[in-house]
Amino acid sequence: MEKDKKEKLKIGIYELTGCAGDALLILDCEKELIDIFKAADIQSFLMAKSDNIEGGLDIALVEGSVSTEKEKKELLDIRKRAKVVVAIGICACFGGIQAAFRNKKNWEKNFKEVYGDIQMTHTKPVQSKPIDAHIKVDYYLPGCPIDKEQFLSTFNRILRGNPPELYRFPVCVECKWNENDCLLNKGIPCLGPVTAAGCGSICINHNLPCVGCWGPVEGANLTSEFQLLREYGFDHDFIRKKMASFSGTGIADFLAKIEGEKR
């Protein structure tokens, strides 16, 4: 039994700033959860257990964006201790919704509007950024929150030393598999064409437009989506803000470009 434990890979699951939805989704793998605990040696998982050990790790799964000095320090420490770091969820991958203020001055102004002039004594705030702004990330598993099936398959592959295989196409492909009517064709502002697949086109299955919560798909044609929505008569600012809602830093170059064009 002891020997068995030594052979298992050491895993740590960490939460930085976010809604804790990705960690919660791992807990929501109800039936598979016990198997996960059997297959791997879960050294640290604050949401699930209190006897956590912070030592060397084979794999660290990190959720959330870096929003305080303390988190930055913790993240650097996790990187030092872990052989493989996986960013899970849109906040860790792209900064998430709290990375909406890309400009530092704008972030500072908004911080002041919420908290006033108070000097925080526990930990200094920093502008919210994805984890790869501070450390090297080995793998990314996007989603808001991550998808159960995709998490289990990714986790399985990494446990066996293989890189994860994520969908490299947009939500539209899954949407076609589900035989939905295209909402864009009806003039509804849907972000499916530029958003990474993996959710199973869940919103469109419910007759609702994709909000882009998985972040940009690899090679997303953002310009074309933008122009299409312009042709449908949507306002420049409206489209820009919609596209920026979840993707944060993931499409920063594109956003800077269209902001420049407007001027």
């Binding site: 929003s67 303390k70 920093v126 919210s128």
Partner: peptide, 14 residues
């Protein structure tokens, strides 16, 4: 320790 997310601010303009 959860960092500030400024949700009340980033919804403004949406």
């Amino acid at each position: 320790y959860e960092g500030p997310r400024l949700i009340e601010r980033l919804t403004v303009g949406k």
